[in-house]
Every structure is written in C-alpha cells, then in structure tokens.
C-alpha cells in the first residue's frame, strides 16, 4: 500500500532550513573544542534567521529537527550530549518565543542571538549539574561559560545580521505571512 503525504510549501521550507542547520551542526561537532561543551553555536544563526523571517513556529520546527536529526547523524541520539543539546534548544526557543512577542520595534538579530546563547548555556549547565556532574566545583565554570556565551551570542548575532541584510537586498524567500505571524 502506498502512502502519500500531502506536503505544503511550509513543510518544504522547514525541511530545507533544517537541512542547512543540520549541516552546520555536524560541521561544528567535528571542530575541535578547547573546552568540552563550549561551541560557537553557529547553527543558532539559522534558528534566529528563521525566527525573524518566518516566525517562531517555524523556528521551533527547524531547531528541534536540527537537534534530533543532527544527533542521529552524529550518533549521539539519546546520549547525554543529546539531552544537553535538546535541553538547551528547548530553553532558548522558549526565551526566543517570549522575546519575539515583545512590543515596540522588537528585538534584532544580535539581541536574539545573545539571548539564545545565554539561555542555551544556562539550561545545559543545569542539566549537566543535575543529571551528570552534581559537583559544586562545576559552579566555578559558570562565569566562564556565560562569558563565552555572551561573546558567541554577539559573534553569531553579527553574522545573522549580515545574512539578514543580504536576504532583504534580494528579498529572498520572504513569506508574506511572516509579518502577520507573531
């Protein structure tokens, strides 16, 4: 029996963007890291761009697909790495959701990226503390991790802004409903 799935333009877009995020995710996990757990979070750039171009719901899909499929491909699915990754993604999506509903001119790419990076690290830190390394010495690392998060947030924010500028020049993929979406 053949099963036909009705896919929409929206589904295709999510799939393409998730594929992009997954590629970055895998490339990043292959990079050596000076301190375990500290990564620049380049895949976050995709999440933020999607958030600003297509709205929060699409960003949630892209980010969660990135975490799940990415971990399946790298081979970390359901391992501690995956739980850290998922926890960080869920927490930062929640904060992004709230921030994207801010009144006024709203938050720009740099603000989103800084928020996302910090929430990511904070959530991962707590998961690591409660599930894996319940040692008080871990708190010694927290200021360093948060500093790294702010720097990473600023860097990815600047990159995201540059990408968004290019996108608006070409007016690529701008969804007419994006403005109406929250």
């Amino acid at each position: 029996m053949q099963l036909t799935l009705q896919t929409t333009r929206e589904d295709h877009r999510i799939a393409w963007l998730a594929a992009l995020a997954i590629t970055i995710h895998i490339a990043e996990s292959a990079l050596p890291s000076p301190i375990p757990g500290i990564k620049p979070g380049l895949a976050n750039i995709v999440t933020i761009i999607v958030l600003m171009q297509f709205g929060w719901t699409t960003a949630v899909w892209v980010a969660l697909l990135r975490v799940v499929v990415g971990s399946l491909l790298v081979g970390t699915f359901l391992t501690p790495t995956f739980m850290l990754s998922l926890g960080g993604a869920v927490a930062s999506l929640a904060v992004l959701g709230i921030a994207s509903r801010l009144p006024g001119r709203g938050v720009g790419p740099v603000g989103y990226c800084v928020l996302a990076a910090m929430t990511h690290i904070a959530a991962q830190f707590w998961i690591a503390y409660w599930l894996f390394i319940p040692h008080d010495a871990l708190f010694h690392l927290l200021p360093v991790l948060m500093t790294a998060a702010v720097i990473a947030g600023l860097v990815t924010g600047v990159i995201a802004r540059a990408v968004l500028d290019r996108l608006s020049d070409t007016d690529y993929g701008r969804h007419p409903a994006a403005a109406a979406a929250d």
Binding site: A94, V95, I98, A99, R101, L102, P103
Partner: peptide, 9 residues
Amino acid sequence: FRCAVTLLA
C-alpha cells in the same frame, strides 16, 4: 501583559 511576562522570564 507581554512586557510583564518577558520581565518575569
């Protein structure tokens, strides 16, 4: 309300 929720978060 949104402002308050953001601050709370």
